Amino acid sequence: MDFDVTTDERLTTVDVTDQVEAAIPEDCEEGMCTAFVQHTTAALVVQENEPRLRGDLESFLSGLVPDEGHAHDELDGNADSHLRATLLGPSAAVPIADGELALGRWQSIFLVECDGPRTRQVSVTVTS
């Protein structure tokens, strides 16, 4: 199953936990769910859904990778977005237990947009 996520800022986080969980077939009690963002300037992470922490993540990425000064910027001006997404990775894998994502109490799945605003496609695969 695939779903789209539309972002409205250059660097932001979007909680996609519900969309990922909705992809689990009703007859799947146990297995593994993998979500994969099909873009090189976005990422998926498992993290706590707390607004200040989400802001801290965005600030951390901005501070870690400067917006400008990269060779790829001569092509299309978004090297920082590629580098930030590389640090985080394009996928998140979560076990399925009792037909639901077996996330910890404070865990959620986030799309991290590094080059928005854009519409991103996330692909979800379930194995049981």
Rank of each mutant, 00 (worst) to 15 (best):
residue 63 G to V: 13
residue 106 W to D: 10
residue 28 C to P: 04
residue 89 G to C: 06
residue 52 R to H: 08
residue 113 E to W: 00
residue 66 P to K: 05
residue 49 N to T: 08
residue 85 A to Q: 03
residue 57 L to Y: 03
residue 66 P to R: 09
residue 57 L to F: 04
residue 42 A to F: 01
residue 111 L to Y: 01
residue 41 T to V: 03
residue 66 P to Q: 09
residue 82 H to V: 04
residue 23 A to D: 14
residue 45 V to Q: 03
residue 23 A to S: 15
residue 82 H to L: 01
residue 46 V to N: 08
residue 101 L to R: 09
residue 58 E to Q: 12
residue 40 T to L: 01
residue 113 E to M: 02
residue 71 A to Y: 11
residue 101 L to N: 11
residue 109 I to C: 06
residue 60 F to Y: 15
residue 28 C to T: 14
residue 105 R to L: 14
residue 39 H to M: 00
residue 113 E to R: 02
residue 108 S to M: 06
residue 110 F to A: 01
residue 46 V to W: 01
residue 79 A to F: 02
residue 100 E to M: 09
residue 97 A to V: 12
residue 86 T to C: 05
residue 98 D to K: 12
residue 91 S to V: 11
residue 109 I to G: 05
residue 95 P to T: 07
residue 99 G to D: 05
residue 57 L to M: 10
residue 38 Q to S: 12
residue 101 L to A: 11
residue 94 V to E: 05
residue 20 V to T: 09
residue 92 A to R: 12
residue 24 I to N: 07
residue 88 L to N: 06
residue 36 F to H: 14
residue 20 V to H: 06
residue 91 S to F: 06
residue 26 E to I: 12
residue 106 W to G: 09
residue 50 E to W: 04
residue 34 T to A: 13
residue 69 G to W: 00
residue 73 D to C: 01
residue 44 L to G: 07
residue 37 V to M: 02
residue 74 E to S: 11
residue 64 L to E: 05
residue 91 S to N: 10
residue 40 T to N: 03
residue 21 E to V: 14
residue 20 V to C: 05
residue 28 C to F: 10
residue 21 E to Q: 15
residue 25 P to F: 15
residue 88 L to R: 06
residue 51 P to E: 09
residue 72 H to E: 08
residue 43 A to Y: 01
residue 34 T to M: 15
residue 40 T to S: 04
residue 62 S to V: 11
residue 54 R to D: 10
residue 82 H to G: 02
residue 52 R to D: 12
residue 75 L to N: 05
residue 94 V to G: 05
residue 58 E to R: 11
residue 110 F to E: 04
residue 102 A to R: 11
residue 22 A to K: 15
residue 90 P to A: 14
residue 70 H to P: 00
residue 75 L to V: 11
residue 100 E to F: 06
residue 56 D to K: 04
residue 34 T to Q: 14
residue 38 Q to E: 13
residue 47 Q to Y: 12
residue 25 P to N: 14
residue 103 L to R: 00
residue 112 V to Y: 00
residue 51 P to G: 04
residue 41 T to Q: 05
residue 28 C to E: 12
residue 79 A to D: 00
residue 73 D to F: 03
residue 115 D to G: 02
residue 24 I to V: 13
residue 83 L to W: 12
residue 106 W to L: 12
residue 64 L to P: 07
residue 73 D to P: 02
residue 65 V to C: 12
residue 102 A to C: 07
residue 44 L to D: 06
residue 77 G to I: 02
residue 90 P to S: 13
residue 105 R to Q: 14
residue 57 L to A: 03
residue 69 G to Y: 00
residue 101 L to H: 09
residue 37 V to W: 03
residue 61 L to N: 00
residue 88 L to F: 07
residue 46 V to L: 10
